[in-house]
Amino acid sequence: MTAHSPEDIRKETRVYIFVFIALAALTVVTVGISYLDLSTGPAVALALFVALIKGSLVAAFFMHLLSERKLIYAVLVFTVFFFLALIFLPLGSFLNQVAG
């Protein structure tokens, strides 16, 4: 563990509280959006966008990815790439079916 002065750590805990408030607020926002009765496209895009922000907040601060080692980033970059392949390649194949 890298040496942090108690002062630094106290500062971090204040950040955690702010992140918590942001997460709570965004939860309310995303629920609010869902009552707007948007059409599917924008609704999905908005909901995913908000979820992405929330997820990034959790990962960046709670999982302290912001100050993580390069090696972890490398592992995660690979994982994200394969995750995207897993989501989009099957989807592509489904949308590109031969009729009949």
């Binding site: 995303t30 629920v31 869902s34 609704a43 979820a51 997820g55």
Partner: peptide, 11 residues
């Protein structure tokens, strides 16, 4: 959960 919540409940 943050992703499950909109995906299952809101959309």
């Amino acid at each position: 959960w943050i992703f499950l919540f909109p995906a299952l409940y809101l959309l």
